[in-house]
Design a protein around this nucleic acid. Sequence first.
DNA 1: GTCTATAACCGGATAGAC
DNA 2: GTCTATCCGGTTATAGAC
Lengths: 228, 228
Amino acid sequence: MAIEAPKTRRGESSRAVILQAALDLFQERGYEATTMRAIAERAGVSLGGSYHYFPSKEHLVLEFYRHTHELHSAAIAPLLLREKDLAARLRGTMRAVIVTCEPFHAVAGSIFSTVANPSSPLNPFGAAAKPLRDEVVALYADVVRGSDARIPADVADMLPLTLWLYQMGILYFWIFDRSPGRLRTLEVIDETTDLIVRLIGLANLPVLRGSRKRVLGLMRSIVEGQIA
Amino acid sequence: MAIEAPKTRRGESSRAVILQAALDLFQERGYEATTMRAIAERAGVSLGGSYHYFPSKEHLVLEFYRHTHELHSAAIAPLLLREKDLAARLRGTMRAVIVTCEPFHAVAGSIFSTVANPSSPLNPFGAAAKPLRDEVVALYADVVRGSDARIPADVADMLPLTLWLYQMGILYFWIFDRSPGRLRTLEVIDETTDLIVRLIGLANLPVLRGSRKRVLGLMRSIVEGQIA
DNA sequence: GTCTATAACCGGATAGAC
DNA sequence: GTCTATCCGGTTATAGAC
């Protein structure tokens, strides 16, 4: 079920070689067009051999995810140190997501659908994905915390998880985006990040107080029931 | 690519028999556990024979969708004639979605993920799904139009499509719902439908006017670019 | 020209020997 | 930890039947 950590020196290297071959081939040909046989061949192991390290083709995708998350995280570190404006932090973070994922655009569709399956071990809402999910949510907590925006405590509580969800929405949009340079997605990011910050500001209005409490209460109850 | 309409009496009946066998087996065993060989066997045709009518296993799912849509549509007809309150219309419509889909709860996960794939012909945002999508959006237009709620024209324009999207969100939540009688989903429906109607009411507030225009403008531009 | 069957192909996954 | 041999199921090619 879980991905086995190799026990020996030789195992470690085989595992790394297989993973690298898979990542390369996914980029070259896409997820579905990459066969396990091709991965094994390029890695110089037998077909059955790869299954010793990765219980399924899907499990190779999880590593792929972690890989891009780490690239993304590194890419935005300077911005998060420098910039204090929330809209700018959020915009920069989202742009970096798109830039980081760009090499995998062709693959992203089939990966997304694989991962959307609730019974897949890779489902972002499931238990197996929790470590990585927590890391990404923590990244968005950092985006919020390091800003000079004044955010009501109840909103700030739910915001990181909401932004993680928002990121998935943007990625799904980006998957469909055929515009040159993915400019459409960048425009949507600019507009939505700005809107999000504006709406957070409006959340303090007395007329909105009631609905805001209800929305947040609903989100909390959903999180407790499903994500935990 | 498209599903061929049978030309003869015999062809029609074969097609219907295959479809019925598939629907039954999906319910009995789930989507993935149902093999094309099993469908063919139960339908009394050869394996290759089924491919004459349905170009792929996925295409059987599209019929499955249409089937549930028709059940749903019929189920809410009396409500839509009788009830004028928007919240009640929406709540009833969403509850009926859940009730209609309940027999397929176990199958829904794998179907959802199949369909989420942007390169799948069944993707709800894609061209092949347009006829059915239009029907569902029209249903929500009816939910809105038949109510006595006073809704700004620009909001009313985008509302049906937004509700169609909202329905997909509820269905995804429902797929994860393990509570007895799917009570959690029903609670979430009650709360969210009420919130939606409330927020529509708030959309007329002068402070929100600017953001509302922007949100709607963004949605329009997305629809024009992607859904058309 | 419309349907149906048989026999294969291909790729993900597994069993079990070494 | 690695291999070979095999299974299983979606899909396709193609020959023939109505």
